[in-house]
Amino acid sequence: MSQLKRHFLFLLCSTRRLGNSEQLAYCAAHPLPPGTEQQWMHLLDFPLPDFVDVRHSGPFQPPIGNAQHLLEATLNATDLVLVAPLYWYSLPAPAKLYLDHWSAWLRTPSLNFRERMQGKTLWAITVSSGERTEAQPLEDSLTLTANYLQMRWGGILFGTGSRPNDIQLDAPALLRARSFFAVSEETVPAAEISSGEEASRIFK
């Protein structure tokens, strides 16, 4: 991983703009080494059609429009960062829909999606008004996703906030953000760690 030029894709998944999770993501991205490629995409700017499961009735068609743009950005990244506030202990609807479309991309033979996702690192940055433990279902979901595609799980950066700009008052989260991606050289395949072990390594 250290020998590969890094290209971060930050996918902003909130249903509002400049929310607390997005602000925390900017803080985490700021210390990245000079020359590190960054691409920022807000899913509100790339609305996806409803996912329709046609596995048992016909082949999936190659993605077009916004789906194609998101697919290309996903495949071009070495590091995929889902920036998502915690909604009902899980991902916001735009993020879940984006991941649902992975099911189609996995089954479109010409894409070789599974093979091209292997070795990438998946990260999450999330803010919630609740306790850190309430984000465990979101973390578990993404850890399993990384494991399934033989990606690396980088970890979750969690902050506390509810009202606009509350994250600016969470000094510990802002401090963690400064070194969040610095652990990237130590990331290992998700299958080799538990989410609890990863969380303890990142937050200690």
Rank of each mutant, 00 (worst) to 15 (best):
A104K: 10
W123R: 02
A135P: 01
R107Q: 14
R107A: 11
E115L: 04
S90M: 09
D140P: 00
R107P: 00
A84S: 15
P85T: 10
T126D: 03
E131T: 13
P109L: 10
E134N: 10
E115Q: 15
W102H: 05
L86S: 07
G119F: 06
P137R: 07
R114T: 09
R116D: 02
W105N: 09
L99M: 15
T126G: 09
W88Y: 12
L86W: 01
M117F: 05
S141R: 08
M117A: 03
Q136I: 11
S128Y: 07
K120R: 13
A95T: 04
G130F: 11
N112E: 12
S141K: 03
V81T: 11
A84N: 14
W88S: 11
W102D: 10
I125E: 10
W105I: 11
D100M: 05
R116T: 01
V81S: 04
A124D: 03
D140M: 11
T133Q: 14
F113P: 09
A104T: 07
P109K: 08
R132P: 08
R132E: 13
E131M: 10
T121G: 03
L122I: 05
L91N: 00
S129D: 13
W123Q: 01
S110G: 15
H101D: 06
G119I: 05
W102M: 06
S90E: 08
S90L: 09
V83C: 15
V83K: 05
F113W: 02
V127L: 07
K120E: 05
E131C: 06
S110A: 15
Y89H: 15
P94Q: 11
P137M: 07
Y89S: 06
Y89K: 04
V83S: 09
L99H: 09
L111I: 03
L138H: 07
E115Y: 01
P109F: 11
Q118C: 13
V83F: 05
P94K: 10
L97D: 00
T108K: 04
Y98N: 02
L138E: 04
H101T: 04
Y89C: 03
W88T: 08
S90R: 00
G119T: 03
G130W: 03
A95G: 04
L106K: 06
E131K: 13
K120D: 05
R132K: 12
N112V: 00
S110H: 02
L82H: 10
S129W: 15
R114D: 14
E115T: 01
W105S: 10
G130M: 07
